[in-house]
Nucleic acid binder design. Structure first.
Lengths: 349, 349
DNA sequence: GACGTCATTGTGAGCGCTAACAATCCATGA
DNA sequence: TCATGGATTGTTAGCGCTCACAATGACGTC
């Protein structure tokens, strides 16, 4: 039974009640060997009796370890960042670390710098920055911090920042060659914002795949990831149907949703008239009209690998150079690229 | 220019370099009055020179304040929880607090208890639990913790836990009476999991609205929030078309997406044959086929209010009883309930 | 029976900061 | 001129914990 007290009990209180020294209490809590069972039991009893909890600040001060990691992210309501965040926290917790998050509306040098400051004030031992914009990665490179920083989701960045990301180039290849293999002569591309490294990498992969097949890449369209921007681009794309447009690779699923709607409203049938491929595999994609062929990014692996990498850095394990970890994406084929509609099955994550 | 050192510089180092006592350094950092400008300048110079950063653990130990709050959540990749989380972090940061998050796959007494322990080890001063399941709220009620806990998103819970949530009852009323006002004789309801307080509250609101109009509520269907479960329920609902079913109120947008698809596949037209209303207003709803009429929950306000409430508790401000804060939802009318399709406009958040 | 060895427990000194109080300086007015 | 008091700065004592080392006790060996 916990006793109500003004001051929470300290290790010394426990020690006194158990009739041992505070150091012995510390040993019991730290699972040290060389503590007699009888003593351990006495101490544990006293701990329970007082409702004692170790003071984390004192512990951190003495050990110089806070066991806290930081994450800086933006667009955390989007599926990708949210999934990554989730995996990061889960992996960190499994290693006994706490994760403090700063969610930014915009990633600029100023906001990033403030975020790192804020996390630093909180005593984090390392930070993962979910920074898909190239500008953010650049900003990070010039900001020096007293702890290690790992960049996630910034495609394959230049510079020497340790990073973890999905191989966007490969993803774009999968999407594009899938359409080519289905018999399309040309593949249009609706890209994300130019500043996003992922968007740029997907453009490169798309273009390379076409050129390797001796196909001249058609005009590139840009959106801002939102369904609305996809809708607008879709209206434009609809105008080219009948003039060679039969296949579109859209840089994310949300924009693909907008494209599908625009095409439908223009009387263009998917996939009969125009095939559409998305990117991300958000849980909804399977239920679009028609269900969307897309490229799945394994955000969970991204999260786990980035924590593993950050902990290598934090705990000072030897690493060769600035590690770059690339995760392979996967093509998921659904009805938006074939003229038949498979039934959905299985449970969504 | 920061000097590389083995040990990060301490306040004493700064004091020595500036030729003052460490206490004066502390005063400068703490923005105390009664420090001569000249002294302040000297100290600030020394701080910059050494690249000094205050040690948060030592500070926390001395002040007995960690300025860290915790959040326990589940389903953080869903729009609702993710939005709430974002608003919480932003509001907390504005007040100078750091936020540590624990994302759970399932909210049970065990996982919740472990999460609170983990956060407690991290020294949080208070916790917000995003706990939409009734069982989670109950678990929270029986778990005693050494810090204040605020529940978010659990509908209007019983018991005396401080809580913040959207008025689900009102939301369900808005949806249901909108359909009745449009001339429907009866309104079906696809609910969420029975264990979710929000789902239960929506059922109550739906049923009350019908009964007040002297309408006998039809059979209630249950899903699990996923598009897939909506799809399956939609197949069942399609079977009742022609037997009185003309309007469905679906408890979230994702399931509504599945319903729309099932209806479409069954040759049922929306909204001509069957009108559909969702709940949440996720960014994609506007681009469903057809665009979805839904009930918008202001998660941002939920986040802000919950931080304000938690800080009242943490900082010991007087509060009457166990505060219950209810936020009003809003109906957003789109094409799924009217036989015409307005163009999308404006920028999505 | 003295001694070395191992297991177990205790002691003392910080970790780097803030709070409370003490000391100093300087201008003011009697 | 000297007391008076506000502004400024310094001194000391913790905050609650872990680390390094010292002390104790039990046991077996020669």
């Amino acid at each position: 039974m916990a006793h109500a007290q003004l001051r929470p009990p300290t290790m010394a209180d426990v020690a006194q009640l158990a009739g041992v020294s505070h150091q012995t209490v510390s040993r019991v809590l730290g699972d040290h060997p060389n503590v007699r069972d009888e003593t351990r039991t006495k101490v544990l009893h006293a701990i329970k009796e007082l409702g004692y909890r170790r003071n984390s600040s004192a512990r951190a001060l003495a050990t110089r370890r806070t066991r806290t990691l930081g994450v800086v992210a933006s667009n955390t309501t989007l599926f990708g960042p949210a999934s990554t965040l989730f995996a990061i926290e889960e992996a960190a917790r499994a290693e006994g670390y706490l994760v403090s998050t700063v969610s930014l509306r915009k990633l600029t040098v100023e906001t990033l710098s403030e975020a790192l400051d804020h996390l630093s004030e909180g005593g984090v031992e390392g930070v993962i920055a979910i920074a898909p914009q190239r500008s953010a990665v650049d900003a990070l490179a010039e900001l020096s911090s007293p702890f290690p920083v790992v960049v996630v989701g910034g495609g394959q960045p230049e510079g020497d920042i340790p990073s973890v990301s999905v191989d966007q180039h490969l993803g774009a290849r999968l999407a594009t060659s899938h359409l080519l293999a289905a018999g399309h002569r040309k593949v249009w591309h609706l890209s994300g914002p130019e500043d996003w490294q992922e968007a740029a990498d997907r453009v490169v992969g798309w273009r390379a795949t076409l050129e390797e097949s001796g196909i001249e890449p058609p005009t590139l369209l840009h959106g801002d990831w939102s369904p609305l921007s996809g809708y607008r681009a879709g209206q434009e794309l609809a105008g080219w149907v009948g003039r060679g447009l039969t296949a579109v690779f859209v840089a994310n699923d949300q924009m693909a949703l907008g494209v599908l709607r625009a095409l439908r409203e223009a009387g263009v049938r998917t996939p009969k008239d125009v095939a559409v491929v998305g990117f991300d595999d958000i849980p909804e994609s399977e239920f679009f009209a028609p269900p969307l062929t897309t490229v799945r990014q394994d955000f969970s692996t991204v999260g786990k690998r980035s924590i593993a990498l950050l902990l290598d850095l934090v705990e000072g394990r030897a690493l060769s150079g600035a590690p770059r970890i690339a995760i392979e994406p996967q093509l998921v084929v659904r009805a938006s690229t074939f003229p038949y509609a498979p039934q959905p099955e299985g449970v969504l994550n």
